[in-house]
Design a protein around this nucleic acid. Structure first.
Lengths: 216, 216
DNA sequence: ATTCGATGTGTACGGTGTCAACATCAAAGT
DNA sequence: ACTTTGATGTTGACACCGTACACATCGAAT
């Protein structure tokens, strides 16, 4: 019957993807599906538990065997996002020697990551996220530490003004996070600077910020 | 019957609120209901069309006679939010003579407004907002212009460095918006500065920002 | 070979935004 | 004064969502 053949094809799909038991590694498949949805035009709005299940070829209730609820899945997605963000910043920073320029590079990379992955970024900063989730908290911390590290290094090199590195980091993070949100939410109209590329805007904001933080 | 008495009480409630016809000024009642919900603990998450209708003592479909869809209602709520934000900034600025101090006062007032009205602020910057909505666009523009005005004034007074006022405004807005989001989303953990009051954080960030923008 | 625990299925519940057909009522036109 | 009409509110439906529970299935430990 149609039912049987459909079911078999599902099993086969799961089997082919390095399965451990029952139907492949569903947990991983669900996260991957969520990542795929979030990268599509629909964005974070279209990220629904049922759609994730559909893509994994599984019933809408199956995800509950691997995640307590939707938020837990979102945490996993967000965690992966913070790791990618950290990587993006680190990769950019690695190509710059001057510590002030490195600070700027990190800020620009931050905004560009958000602009390139708006759906993912929105999940990372969604209101419903369980802040207690251990992996997520650690991943977010690591991303933030990248910024702090660059600031401390700049201070040691005498290129950034002395003072509370933490306050400087919070200010920097606020600026890049705010710009990222403004850009991905399409809120540039009031500034009269629409049409400008995210990169150009990021460079402009980060330069002003770095000028302010630079030793004088 | 119970039905009749219930209906009558609804009519009476509407009547008592300066009605024009059928049932009072439902459009206004719906917006007010939305504003009330957004100010409650539940916040923007709890803002549902059906709940708004319930509070107005009306059926779940009635709002569609006054708003095309939920987003249009949200636009109205957001518009009112931007007006209140503008007022809050202007009120604070009016008490400061020095133009650099005034710039700082505006930034601090911005963050404090968001911290005091997190639900409302989240609606104002929700992803689903129709950017085309005329009233909303104007209200947002006015709020932003408050910032731009303060910067231009500071430049004229020789207290803020010269350069593109628009870029400086975008940088300032990014910083206060970013900090506002971080605070109301409870994302301070990575900074190691949790527990600090929004006001203290705002002052710290704004001071750093103003130092950077100040003429030297 | 049997049991058992983990995993996926089916079905159900209450909630949401939205729509279309219907009912009502104030005001305009006769 | 009576009718018509257009704006407003109601009813009931639809498709979706997150979540819960009882049931089926199947790999692995006994």
């Amino acid at each position: 019957m149609a039912d049987d053949s459909k079911r078999r094809s599902i099993r086969n799909r799961a089997r082919s993807a390095g399965s451990t038991y029952h139907h492949g590694d569903l947990r991983r498949a669900l996260i991957d599906g969520a990542l795929a949805i979030v990268a599509e035009p629909g964005g974070a709005e279209a990220l629904t538990l049922r759609e994730v299940a559909r893509r994994a070829g599984v019933t809408h209730a199956a995800p509950y065997r691997h995640f307590e609820n939707k938020d837990q899945l979102l945490c996993e997605v967000a965690e992966e996002g913070f790791r990618k963000l950290t990587d993006a910043m680190a990769a950019r920073a690695a190509r710059v020697r001057d510590s002030l320029a490195r600070y700027r590079a990190i800020g620009t990379a931050y905004v560009e990551f958000a602009a390139a992955n708006p759906g993912h970024y929105r999940v990372m900063f969604g209101a419903r996220l369980d802040h207690g989730h251990p992996g997520l908290a650690e991943a977010a911390q690591t991303a933030f530490d990248t910024l702090v590290g660059a600031i401390v290094a700049g201070q040691k090199a005498g290129q950034l003004r002395s003072g509370s590195a933490m306050e400087m980091a919070l200010t920097s993070w606020s600026a890049v996070h705010g710009l990222a949100m403004i850009v991905i939410d399409g809120r540039l109209a009031p500034t009269g600077l629409p049409g400008k590329s995210p990169t150009a805007l990021a460079r402009s904001v980060v330069r002003l910020l770095a000028d302010g933080m630079a030793a004088r």
